[in-house]
Amino acid sequence: MSSPSRSGCRRRRELLAAVLLAAALSACQREDRRFRTWPPAASAIPAVRQSELQPGPTTRDLTVRNEYGDNAWAVSEGKRLYNQFNCSGCHFQGGGGIGPPLMDSQWIYGSQPENIFATIVEGRPNGMPSFRGKLGNDQVWKLVAYVRSMSGLLAKDVASGRNDDMQVRSQEQSTEKARPVQSAVPPASQRP
C-alpha cells in the first residue's frame, strides 16, 4: 500500500497530464483547416437585423456564430484575403483611408460577426462595395474573423502574430481589445 501523500502526488500528476492533454487538444482545434465548404457562394444570413429598433415587443435574435472566430489558421487566411481582395486599398492596414478605420473601437454598422458579414456581402451606402456573388461564404467569414482581430476582439492566441511582408502596424496579437462603440453615420455630404 502506498502512503496517502504518495497517492495524492500521483493524482496531482494525473491531473497535470489531463490538463496538458486538454490544452494540446484545444490547440488542434485552433489550427483546424477546412478546405471544402458548401455552399460556396456568399449569401446573406436571413436572421440578421440591420437595425436595433424593432416594432412591437423586442424579440431575442438567434445569434450567428462565426465558426472561424477561434481558428488561427482561418484568421491568417482572412489576413491574406484582406490584401488579395483589396480591402487594404480602401481601409489600408486598418487605419482607414477611403473607408473607415477598422482597428479602432468605432463601428458604424456593428461589430458583431453577423454585422460585419452583412457589411461585406451587402455593401454599405457610403462607398463600401457589395461582395455578394464574388466571394464564398467561408471567405467572408475568414475576413470577418480577421477584421475583428484588428481591434483585438478575438482571443490573443488566435489573432495573427506576424506579417508576411513589411510591418506596417503592431501585430493583431498584441492589439488591446477596443470596446466597440456605436458611431453615427455621417451624412454623405460631410464625408471626405
Binding site: R33, F35, R36, T37, W38, P39, P40, A41, G136, D138, Q139
Partner: peptide
C-alpha cells in the same frame, strides 16, 4: 466545380 477535391488547400474555392 471542386478544386479542393483535386488539390486540397489550393487557393481556389469551389464554385456552384
Amino acid at each position: 466545380v471542386d478544386p479542393q477535391r483535386i488539390k486540397p488547400g489550393a487557393r481556389m474555392p469551389p464554385n456552384q
